[in-house]
């Protein structure tokens, strides 16, 4: 089955099985490996990408659902060099093993898009679906708060 959609701003067409998921299409067919496989059933959030600006789990998003729509992955998040969240992630030295961090950043970016100045409670509630085994949660919250306050100043 051929599917066309926009990936990180560019039109792409892929040939896959009809029931292929966005996750494995991104990773294996399109070789965009920043989006991670963690659980396969939408429990960990490591595969979080944006579908028309909304955070979705690529592991349970079938390729047919993205036809004609716009997908953004960690590779395409930044318009220029780095997204303010990526800068904040470096500033706070958030990642440890780093495997979940693409998903964390994509989930956080969707939040800031909808709510540029979230409070702590809103951050935690929005981010709760993305697991981190290294235990970087405290730094993730700091990084989101820092990115939000910096964009407000600009």
């Amino acid at each position: 089955m051929k599917t066309s959609f926009k990936l990180n701003g560019k039109q792409v067409q892929v040939e896959t099985a009809p029931d292929a998921t966005l996750l494995w299409t991104l990773r294996d067919t399109l070789q965009m490996t920043g989006t991670k496989f963690g659980c396969g059933v939408s429990l960990c959030g490591a595969c979080t990408v944006h579908l028309d600006g909304m955070a979705v789990r690529a592991c349970v998003t079938s390729i047919s659902m993205v036809a004609g729509r716009s997908v953004t992955t960690i590779e395409g998040l930044a318009e220029k060099e780095l997204h303010p969240l990526q800068e904040a992630w470096i500033e706070e030295q958030v990642p440890q093993c780093g495997y979940c961090q693409s998903g964390q950043i994509m989930q956080a970016a969707a939040l800031l898009q909808a709510n540029p100045r979230p409070n702590r409670e809103q951050i935690v509630s929005h981010m709760n679906g993305v697991l981190c085994r290294c235990g970087t949660y405290v730094r993730i919250v700091k990084a989101i708060e820092s990115a939000a306050s910096k964009s407000e100043k600009q």
Partner: peptide, 19 residues
């Protein structure tokens, strides 16, 4: 000092075995 691997882990470019 900032960690060497951190920038690679915020833009998806760090290569894990999975990748």
């Amino acid at each position: 000092l900032p960690r060497f691997d951190v920038p690679l882990k915020v833009d998806g470019s760090a290569q894990f075995g999975m990748d």
